[in-house]
Write a protein that binds this DNA or RNA. Structure first.
Lengths: 151, 151
DNA sequence: CCGGAATAGTTGACGCGTCATCGAAGTTCA
DNA sequence: TGAACTTCGATGACGCGTCAACTATTCCGG
């Protein structure tokens, strides 16, 4: 017996889906147009600047981003081709590889971040009150918990 | 002067991003594995069943889905190849085309929907109380309004 | 009725994401 | 030590999404 969504749930779900799709599309387009970076590039660069200077192993990065390793591998290849990151050999474990930010990569993220934050603000936070912001954080934490629990 | 996100906003934003990415990935994978349909297929099929029996113009469908016409065109080609939809000539306007659901398309959506709703419930709604559901709906409506306003 | 602009939809190129698979290197244990 | 197993990461194939360009038709002013 399928438990369909009731009216209240349906309103939330359809709204969420629409918001998610539109927000994603807008922010992505804007970032791309402003800076030539994709959303995915941005995430990788943020994760790398979070551990500035360190050599980061590929799987470590994948873990931090919660990405599949093959996705990251493909993406690093594309970013490397554009000069945003480099791969370095790993002496300890010859299977492995380190990823490091290039100067150009650093310049790219520093140039892109302000306009991106501004766009996030404009489309999302400037319209929400403090209660809504907290509610969103709470919802996200709850759902992430359930996802983790679901294995 | 960049207005960076404060701590509360940052918590909400990072949480939202993580939730969104994980939820998307899980639901998509599950739908694909259970029914062979992608999320995008699902959306198209839902939109078509909403106007069951009618002949629907491509741009009308694009409007309903809020998709770009080229995206829809590409996607319809893929779905047509798999026998889920058909294109029909439009007598009124020879430039145009109608899209119709095939019997197989109808079977696919009817078969896929229950498990999908169950997954949505399991990952999201079973963990949220009524206030959170309403808060989510409110947030989505607010943000969608801002997006529309931003043109 | 003609010529230019707008509209419907398709196409091609290219970047992104997943799955399955693979090769090379490390680990475990008899 | 060496055979089975696991882990690291790359790769190929394929579906998805965007942008720009294109074809074919319709609309509209003169």
């Amino acid at each position: 017996m399928t438990r369909w969504l009731d009216e209240r749930e349906q309103r939330a779900w359809r709204g969420y889906l629409a918001m998610q799709a539109q927000l994603q599309a807008r922010l992505h387009r804007r970032l791309q147009a402003d800076s030539g970076l994709s959303y995915a590039d941005f995430d990788v660069l943020v994760a790398l600047t979070d551990r500035a200077g360190e050599q980061v192993r590929v799987l470590e990065l994948a873990e931090a981003l919660q990405w599949e390793k093959s996705r990251l591998s493909h993406h690093l290849s594309r970013m490397q081709k554009r000069g945003l990151v480099e791969r370095e050999e790993c002496a300890d474990d010859a299977r492995g590889a380190f990823v490091v930010l290039t100067a150009e990569g650093r310049r790219a993220i520093e140039g892109a971040a302000p306009a991106h934050v501004e766009a996030v603000r404009e489309l999302m936070f400037d319209g929400l009150d403090a209660d809504q912001v907290d509610a969103l954080a709470g919802i996200a934490e709850t759902v992430l918990g359930r996802i983790r629990a679901a294995g």
